[in-house]
């Protein structure tokens, strides 16, 4: 869910905006390493994919529905820095062209969903991948756990921002319970879909999955001399 205008006060919005700008600047440097000069077209298409995947709603409890956030999915498939850029651009387009998510809350949304969501998810994924056996089969479960963790952590980060700069006199404890409880449910949906999608891509095109790249380095091509 996108934070709208007026939910957090102006100083907090500006501060998260500064954080977002710094984070995106770091991601821009990193993405050049992940994708070299293919960054613009590939990140653009991955961003479009994330946007399209977000259009699919899944039912959550009580007749409401949630949708994929896609941060961890994009990070595992295309690399963490590319994912930060993709999520940020998706949020930028949604806020400027679709009035979805406030313009002053853009920094907050990028910080929460782009930076916190992707960074936490990617760290969890990396940690699991080093622990789990080096096979293709361990990539989807690691991605799923990363997705499951990243969504409530982003909600936790939102609660912290709300405690600092929230404009409603609601007890922080209540916000915490509601936000984290709700996002654990959304995180479960996110985890299942991330697991299945990463599994599907790993099965057919493992070479495209950034999070599975460490698996092919072993089988590089080599030049052998033909027997004379």
């Amino acid at each position: 869910m996108h934070v709208p205008d007026g939910f957090l006060d102006a100083p907090t919005s500006i501060a998260t905006g500064v954080v977002a700008v710094a984070g995106v600047a770091v991601a821009l440097r990193g993405a050049r390493k992940e994708l070299d000069d293919r960054t613009a077209p590939l990140a653009g298409l991955v961003a479009t994919f994330v946007f399209a995947a977000q259009m699919i709603n899944f039912p959550v409890a009580g007749g409401t529905s949630g949708h994929l956030l896609g941060g961890v999915l994009a990070a595992v498939l295309a690399g963490p820095c590319t994912a930060v850029l993709c999520i940020s651009v998706v949020l930028l387009v949604q806020s400027l062209l679709m009035a979805d998510g406030g313009v002053t809350a853009l920094g907050t949304n990028i910080t929460l969903m782009g930076l916190v969501g992707v960074a936490v998810g990617w760290l969890v994924f990396k940690a699991l991948i080093t622990v789990l056996p080096r096979t293709k089969a361990s990539v989807p479960p690691a991605a799923a756990v990363a997705a499951l963790v990243s969504v409530p952590v982003a909600a936790l980060a939102f609660t912290a921002l709300f405690a600092i700069g929230g404009t409603a006199p609601v007890e922080t404890g209540k916000v915490l319970t509601a936000m984290v409880g709700w996002h654990v449910v959304i995180g479960l949906g996110e985890a299942v879909i991330t697991f299945l999608v990463v599994g599907a891509v790993v099965a057919s095109r493992p070479d495209l999955v950034h999070g599975a790249r460490h698996l092919h380095s072993a089988d590089d091509l080599e030049i052998r001399k033909a027997a004379a």
Binding site: F49, L196, A200
Partner: peptide, 13 residues
């Protein structure tokens, strides 16, 4: 649905 999204990712990439 997930296989569809996987295919969509591969096609987009």
């Amino acid at each position: 649905l997930a296989r569809t999204l996987g295919a969509l990712f591969i096609r987009s990439y």
